[in-house]
């Protein structure tokens, strides 16, 4: 059953990807991108990567849709026909894909119990995290409890970046307002 769900979701993903390449209307591409993110997040959670799945849903389906739509406001909604031949980009993409597939040959098989990640400290975390932290998800307990200071630092960096961007945008808007007042 798990295999079937993963297989069907992957097939849907490839269908949406082909559609994104083929569609010329950029607004449709944004909607397709949102659908892609939701399918991808569902697949990630079905494969037990809950934290990655949540990030994909929040960033891919939530923020990216909004950002792409804002960008679409500044440009035309239809993609211009390509001026050059598509052969070179397609060949490069296929080549990159092949290299990535070649890279997966050295990865351990999905769910293999003999890999370093399962024989090193993983077992100890699995044993200790629930009695020590009472967090039901082990990955979350590592991120938010054992590496709590690390995560706090990351959050502080992202928060500071957000404040910086907001201040830059605010300063620009105020200057535009002042210009309009001078004119009137």
């Amino acid at each position: 059953m798990e295999f079937l769900i993963n297989l069907v979701l992957l097939l849907f993903l490839s269908a949406v990807t082909v559609a994104i390449i083929g569609v010329r209307n950029l607004f449709a591409v944004v909607v397709l991108g949102g659908a892609y993110s939701f399918l991808m997040a569902t697949l990630l959670i079905a494969m037990d990567a809950v934290d990655v799945g949540m990030t994909e849903a929040a960033v891919g389906a939530g923020v990216s849709t909004v950002l792409l739509l804002s960008a679409l406001h500044l440009t035309k909604t239809d993609e211009a026909p390509a001026r050059h031949s598509n052969v070179l980009p397609i060949a490069l993409s296929v080549l990159t894909g092949l290299v990535l597939v070649y890279g997966t040959w050295d990865l351990p098989r999905y769910g293999d119990s003999d890999t370093p990640m399962n024989t090193h400290v993983g077992a100890e975390y699995l044993e200790r995290s629930i009695p020590e932290t009472t967090v039901p998800n082990v990955v979350t307990s590592v991120l938010a409890s054992y590496r709590g200071y690390d995560t706090l630092g990351e959050t502080a960096v992202i928060f500071t970046a957000g404040i910086g961007v907001l201040m830059l945008l605010k300063g620009r808007r105020r200057r535009e307002d002042e210009k309009e007042e001078d004119r009137s």
């Binding site: 849907f12 949406v16 449709a28 909607v31 397709l32 659908a35 939701f38 399918l39 997040a41």
Partner: peptide
């Protein structure tokens, strides 16, 4: 997903895209 991909109008796509989220 067939409706999201085929369209034909943008409103079909928006509603179908929303349905993809709901079904997920």
């Amino acid at each position: 997903l067939v409706r999201v991909i085929k369209g034909p109008t943008i409103f079909d796509r928006v509603i179908a895209g929303n349905s993809v989220g709901t079904l997920s």
